[in-house]
Design a binder for these strands. Structure first.
Lengths: 236, 236
DNA sequence: GACCGATTCAAACGAATGTTTAAATCATGC
DNA sequence: GCATGATTTAAACATTCGTTTGAATCGGTC
């Protein structure tokens, strides 16, 4: 009852691998099932046989990696909180928990996760309707847990402000993993040799921690906002 | 000699408007010329007549807004540097110059720029080959000027580090303007009422300034990076 | 009113898309 | 060895795509 997954499931994984790679290069819509099955070396009908439809294939590509990735993020957070014994974590610990799982994924050549991380970055912006429902579902638990952890680690930040800063954090994170295309533009190149994921994380974490801890914006003045202290004066 | 732009040239702009709106909702590839021309109320052939091809239409959608937007960014920076009379700017001034032009665009209802900003966010990640060459071209001057301004405003940050932080900055910026879809996930909603562009900017700027000024990461230690000074204690 | 370039229009083009079908092939139980 | 279910295969399905065509229509000039 086991070796059935030997050749058959191989087909499924070959399809997933090929699809993952092509989605990164060309996007979902521009990648046809014929390209995928050609690259995977399988028959065209195999996709609809094993996955049902192209949309389901796309979801499967994500579930294969995003599930374990987010589980590991939560596990990392669990470990930290267990060590802390009820004390709030330090902000850099929470950021680290958020980021380092992705780092590990990208570093493991067996998992072939580098392509997936770039795909992930490209896809957050994906306007496709079924993706707009699928991705939040995949991220829900991570968001809830980390939002709570950040709220404890940064008690001086009001909730609404924290939500936005987490939003910015997600942006910088996904963007920096979406590939160095935009980076190659900023640097005149030859700097971007440090594109291994580990050094990216080592640079990203301080940036995010500082941003999350930034002084609160001035309440609602019209003139030059002076970015001074965080008086929680409710304007109006 | 004026009303000629009333119906005829109106066709081009009607197409551009419709395309812009549909691209935001569905992406480039998923949006067909038939949808665009239907929404614009013009004939299908009008796109190829006025723009030559779908790709050229896409470029036109971007050029119409991205050109003025980036020109204004540079003009803003020019103004600041003229006022400073040779002194380096403050980091928040440079960030403000980068961000506020986009804010103004989004606030002008006449320009209909809100949709475009969201489109821009979605598109930075666009894998399409001709976009990979077109966008850097559009951004080149902005990047050069702002990189120089940041280098003067943040003299203690090494160039390589600065390049990465600008990268992160672009990420947080584009992401936060790409629409509140991901945000709606973080907040349980009902917080996101503050989605007008101005309040976003007021929150975004302090975050970015703090991130850009973050303490430099520890050199290359293996143990827990304490983000303080680079103690080269070897954790055995 | 006739001419003309610019624009619009309906219709068709070939190519490519996701999906389905029915036969062929495989592995495996009895 | 044969029946059975799972998989693979080649071929076709109906749509949809971007683009092209050639005639119709418009506004303005002589």
């Amino acid at each position: 009852m086991f070796p059935e997954t030997r050749f058959a499931a191989d087909t499924k994984e070959r399809i997933l691998d090929a699809a993952e790679a092509l989605f990164v290069e060309q996007g979902f819509v521009a990648t046809s099932l014929r390209m995928i099955t050609a690259k995977a070396g399988v028959n065209l009908a195999a996709v609809n046989y094993h996955f049902g439809s192209k949309d389901e294939l796309i979801k499967a590509v994500f579930e294969r990696r995003l599930g374990p990735l987010n589980k590991e993020r939560i596990a990392y957070l669990d470990r930290l909180e267990a060590q802390a014994k009820g004390k709030p974590l330090k902000p850099e610990q929470v950021v680290e928990a958020m980021v380092s799982a992705a780092l590990k994924l990208s570093r493991d050549p067996l998992k072939g996760g580098t392509a997936f991380l770039r795909l992930l970055g490209h896809t957050i912006a994906e306007p496709a309707d079924y993706m707009q429902r699928f991705l939040p579902e995949q991220y829900r638990e991570v968001v809830v847990r980390f939002k709570a952890a950040f709220a404890r680690a940064l008690p001086e930040i009001p909730e609404q402000e924290l939500v936005w800063r987490m939003h910015f954090m997600f942006g910088a994170m996904t963007y920096s993993m979406a590939g160095n295309d935009a980076l190659r533009l900023i640097a005149s190149c030859k700097l971007c040799e440090a594109d291994d994921a580990e050094s990216i994380v080592r640079r990203l974490v301080p940036f995010l921690v500082a941003g999350l801890q930034a002084p609160l914006p001035a309440a609602r003045t019209e003139g030059k906002p002076d970015t001074r202290r965080a008086t929680r004066k409710r304007a109006a």
